[in-house]
Design a binder for these strands. Sequence first.
DNA 1: GTAGCTGCAAACAATTTGCACACCG
DNA 2: CGGTGTGCAAATTGTTTGCAGCTAC
Lengths: 142, 142
Amino acid sequence: MTEPISRSRPPGRVRGTRQAAAIEDTLREADGFRTAQELFDELRRRGDSVGLTTVYRNLNLLVEAGLADVVHREDGESQFRLCGHSAAAGEHHHHIVCRVCGRSVEVAGPEVEAWADRVAAAAGYTQISHTVELFGLCPDHS
Amino acid sequence: MTEPISRSRPPGRVRGTRQAAAIEDTLREADGFRTAQELFDELRRRGDSVGLTTVYRNLNLLVEAGLADVVHREDGESQFRLCGHSAAAGEHHHHIVCRVCGRSVEVAGPEVEAWADRVAAAAGYTQISHTVELFGLCPDHS
DNA sequence: GTAGCTGCAAACAATTTGCACACCG
DNA sequence: CGGTGTGCAAATTGTTTGCAGCTAC
């Protein structure tokens, strides 16, 4: 499982199509969270036109494979970003996402995890999952 | 075009219509988070039939008035609950929501707020808002 | 050659809005 | 009465699915 996402694809899983590569590349270069629509537009602008359906499908594949993260904006729209930059893929972490440009920083919050477990236990709840998302303005947009 | 907020409405009681009262009552008796659809169904079951549109409109009014809380489920659907039971209305707090029955506990998390501010500041982000939602199984459904 | 992608259009689900009518105050 | 809330249907929006054709392997 220790495989960089650079170019190598697990040979049995995803097929190396032009579209999948374009989506992954664009998402990587974006270096921030993007919605499917935004990605679709950026791809078209780049000349690597890809169907919106394909964008959604590949994004979901990336998420399932643990290669991308999703955060749900306050308006409910989903934003995607390749993960594993600073944290090990699969590791639990959260994000601070810029409301303007989508640029984000991965943050690990052991205290938050501990807090979540503690209050949940105190309330008698089990099998806790939690959603922690921070939105703000990055240094360039403050 | 849309200015729903700034309306000279007495903030403690919305207009006394049968529907608004039914919605508020049902939501209160539910004692947990409910989606608009669920509320709509429960109202119909109760015999206090109310249009789905009206359910949505009143829920949004309650939220704007600070009388109700919303949490967004992982699948994106919105769930509503009257707040102010154990915490002062308007006070910042979070919820542990039962994935099965919607029953929830309000929790204040000063540590989380502090953590959020700290990591945000460390990353150079400003005007931080955060979403913290805990989902689990309540004692009755563990 | 063939299973797996792609992509368009149509389906979908949650939520909002237009507009005529009902009803509170 | 007069304006506001209601409710049905239709419009919106984000996302998924059906299905024919293309493509990588």
